[in-house]
Design a protein around this nucleic acid. Structure first.
Lengths: 241, 241
DNA sequence: CGCGTTCTTGACTGCTTTCAAAGATGGTGG
DNA sequence: CCACCATCTTTGAAAGCAGTCAAGAACGCG
C-alpha cells in the first residue's frame, strides 16, 4: 500500500493516467513517482505476440523476465505422448520469470490470446522491500501460492472441486488485476485448455461444466464466466473455514 | 560455479571443515570466506524438532526463513475432509520460505524425521548474484522447477509414472545435497506419506511399488531406495529425450 | 455455403479408490 | 522372554470416477 494512497482508492497512484498494469503493480509494493516513470518507459516498449504462438519455446535455455501487459498466456510442459499440463496462466500484471528445467520437463510460454508484454523492471536492490524489489518479492510469493494451490487441486480434488476451485482462483486473480467485474470475469479459454490446466480430458471438463451450470453455480461460455453462487463454490472446495 | 573452484571439485570451499549443508550452498553461488564464516555462525544456532511435529503450523501468518540442516520435513496442505497433499519435501540444504496462503489452502511445515534447522542467512543485496543473494535466487529457482514438475506429475501421469518420476527427482535432489550414494538414497517415508505426495492412496502406492520391484526398476524399503535401472526409469517418464 | 474448430453426447473400458481384514514389524512393560 | 499394542504393509473384492472412442451438433470464418 502506498503512503500517498491514504484516503484514496487502494490502487491509486500519483499519476492518474498510468497504465492499468502499473496500478496493479502499485498494489504489490510502494512505488515512488520515479519508479512509476521508469515503469511507464518500459510499458512503452510494448511487444506483442499473436494467439497460439510460443513466446518462449519449451526447452529454451534462458529468457528475459517479462511483464504481462494484456492478453492471456500460459506456461505448460509436454509429456512424451503429446499431452500437456498447464502449470499456470499468465494475465496482465503478472511477472514472468524464466525457470530452467530438465529437457523432459521443459516448460514454455505460449500466447493464448493476442498478448502484449514488455521487459520486467530490473531490480535495484534496496535494504527494504519497496519499489521494484518489493514487486519482485510479492510477485514471487503470489506465484508460489498459486502453485501450491494447483498442486493441492490436482492431487486431492475430484473434477468438480478442481473446476470450482480453479474458477475461484481465476476470479480472484483477475479481480486483483482489475479485470473482473464483480463475479463476472473474462475466460477466453476452450474446454481443452481448461482440461490441460485441470489435469482432465476436455470431454470430462465439458460434463463437469454442465454439472456446474445445472447446479446454478456458474455461468460460463462466450469467453466469459460468472460465479452465480460464490459462497456455495467456496463451501464446495472447503474455503468456508 | 565459483571462480576458485576451477580445477577443484565443484563443492570445494575455502574451509575444509565446513558443514555439509554449507558445501551444498556453495554449489549454488559463489561464497566468500566471509560468507562461509557467517553461515557457520548461523549453523551453530541449530535448532531441532522431533519427528511428526509441526515446525510452522498450518495457517500461521508469518514465519522466519529457515535453512534445513538435517532430517526431512514436508510442506503440505489439508483438505476439508482431512486428506492431505504434500507440496514439497524439504531436505538438508533447502531454504524454507514462508508463503502466505488463504486459510483454506494453509500450508504448514511438518518434521518427518528428527530435524535440525537454523535461520537462513539474511540477504544483503548486491548488484551481482553472488553470495547470499545468489543462494536465494538459485534456491528459489529450484523450488519453482520442482513445483512445476510436481504439477506435471499430478496432472498428467498415472500412478506408475508418478512414482518413478518422483523417485528420480528425490534421487537427484539428495544427490545434489550430497546425501545419495550413487543410485542409493535415504527415503525415510511410509507409503502413506508417499501417497500424500503423489496424490494417491497408500493402498495404491503399495501396489505400485510392488510393480516397480517386480519390474526390477527399484529396490525400496527400510528407509532407503535404490534405482536398479535408472535409464529405464527415465525412459518411462520420458526423460530420454 | 462449406470447412475447421469447438462443444456435446453415449457407451464402454479401466485405473484408482474404498472397504475390510490379515500379516509384519517394532517397541514396551510385565 | 513373551504378551501386547500401535504402526505399517499387504491382499482381495467391489464400486466409482475419469478416460477413451466415436459420432453428431453448433459455431465461427472465409
Amino acid at each position: 500500500m502506498t503512503k500517498r494512497s491514504i484516503g484514496m482508492h487502494a490502487t491509486a497512484v500519483s499519476s492518474p493516467a498510468s497504465h492499468p498494469v502499473i496500478r496493479r503493480l502499485a498494489t504489490l509494493a510502494h512505488l515512488s513517482a520515479e519508479d512509476v516513470a521508469r515503469l511507464e518507459k518500459l510499458v512503452a516498449a510494448r511487444r506483442t505476440s499473436t494467439a497460439r504462438r510460443d513466446i518462449v519455446a519449451a526447452g529454451a535455455q534462458s529468457a528475459q523476465t517479462l511483464l504481462m501487459l494484456d492478453g492471456w498466456a500460459l506456461r505448460s510442459c509436454l509429456t512424451v505422448d503429446g499431452r500437456r499440463q498447464i502449470t499456470q496462466f499468465l494475465i496482465p500484471g503478472d511477472i514472468v520469470t524464466f525457470v530452467a528445467t530438465d529437457a523432459s520437463h521443459a516448460n514454455g510460454l505460449t500466447a493464448l490470446t493476442a498478448v502484449g508484454y514488455c521487459p520486467a523492471p530490473d531490480i535495484h536492490p534496496r535494504a527494504d522491500s519497496e519499489g521494484f524489489a518489493g514487486i519482485a518479492i510479492a510477485s514471487n510469493a503470489l506465484e508460489l501460492k498459486y502453485l501450491y494451490r494447483q498442486v493441492a487441486r490436482l492431487g486431492r480434488m475430484d473434477a468438480f472441486q478442481r473446476t470450482v476451485d480453479w474458477l475461484l482462483e481465476m476470479r480472484e486473480r483477475l479481480y486483483l488485476a482489475g479485470l473482473a467485474h464483480g463475479e463476472r470475469f473474462p475466460l477466453p479459454l476452450t474446454q481443452e485448455v481448461m482440461a490441460d490446466a485441470l489435469g482432465l480430458t476436455s470431454v470430462h471438463v465439458n460434463r463437469t461444466l454442465q454439472a456446474l451450470r445445472r447446479d446454478g453455480l456458474v455461468q460460463i461460455g462466450e469467453g466469459w464466466a460468472t460465479l452465480r453462487d460464490r459462497k456455495q463454490c467456496e463451501f464446495i472446495v472447503g474455503r468456508h473455514r
